[in-house]
């Protein structure tokens, strides 16, 4: 065999080249063809397909920063955080954190938390199909609320923010014209309905305290008390009714 200019592992050199490095020497084209131009097809395929995947997952971020900025930012993100699995729907889990540290986006301090909402919606979309508690089963939990820990559907995710992230998310849907959004702290609830819609809802501080306690595995009674400490007038039924109406209360388990 001829000695090779290309390392035995053709994938190592090409991966470096695809993520910004030079073209490996063993890669050739026919006489008269531009090697760089033809190798660039692969580079463009990788960058374009992954940028599209990111834009599909984070459409509000793309709208907030504009397509040109988003494409440039995606390139940096792809080079630093390429997908780690062919299951592309798991990719982007570090995008919010990346945004928080991305200096050119520093003028949009809320963007990272909005990105968390968008990632959570994808998680909800692909989450498992589980059977929820019936009305009767849920009613029975009241009798032992001091020991009952509610297990919620994995689609249920809560995102706390110092910014008005629910208003910003809703105000930047495709059908919404830009409008001023008042500054306030908001907590977002993301879930999947039985009809496969994935709404982004705003929780009051008391509801957020209660849901946080449920998600942390505390007994229902303690979760209700956590909410009342925030707001003595809070009725725990609102949050429970909301979760139950979307069939996201899966079971009640005794706290050990």
């Amino acid at each position: 065999m001829q000695p090779s200019n290309l390392p035995d592992d053709h994938t190592a050199a090409m991966t470096r080249a695809l993520l910004g490095g030079g073209i490996p020497r063993g890669v050739t084209v026919k006489r008269g063809q531009d090697r760089a131009r033809r190798f660039a097809v692969y580079r463009n395929n990788v960058m374009h397909s992954l940028t599209q995947a990111l834009a599909t997952r984070f459409p509000v971020i793309e709208r907030l920063v504009g397509t040109e900025f988003f494409t440039a930012m995606a390139r940096v993100y792809i080079e630093q955080h390429p997908p780690r699995s062919p299951r592309l729907f798991e990719w982007g889990d570090t995008f919010a954190e990346f945004l928080r540290g991305f200096a050119p986006a520093a003028s949009l301090p809320y963007a990272a938390d909005v990105a968390r909402i968008e990632y959570a919606r994808g998680v909800a979309y692909h989450s498992a199909d589980l059977t929820a508690l019936s009305d009767a089963e849920l009613s029975a939990v009241a009798g032992w609320a001091d020991r009952a820990r509610l297990v919620l559907h994995p689609c249920v995710q809560m995102i706390r923010s110092n910014y008005a992230i629910v208003d910003i998310w809703q105000g930047n849907q495709p059908d919404q014209a830009p409008r001023p959004i008042a500054h306030r702290a908001q907590t977002a609830l993301v879930l999947r309905t039985p009809h496969h819609a994935i709404p982004v809802l705003s929780l009051t501080e008391a509801e957020a305290a209660m849901l946080g306690a449920i998600l942390a595995g505390m007994p229902l009674l303690e979760a209700m008390m956590a909410a009342q400490r925030v707001d003595p007038a809070h009725s725990p039924n609102t949050l429970i009714a909301l979760l139950h109406s979307h069939q996201t209360i899966i079971s009640a388990q005794e706290v050990s």
Partner: peptide, 18 residues
Amino acid sequence: WSSHGDAYLNDLLPLPYT
């Protein structure tokens, strides 16, 4: 091929035929 190390490149990439 489409993966190298931890990276998945989301494209169908070529290999030498040896």
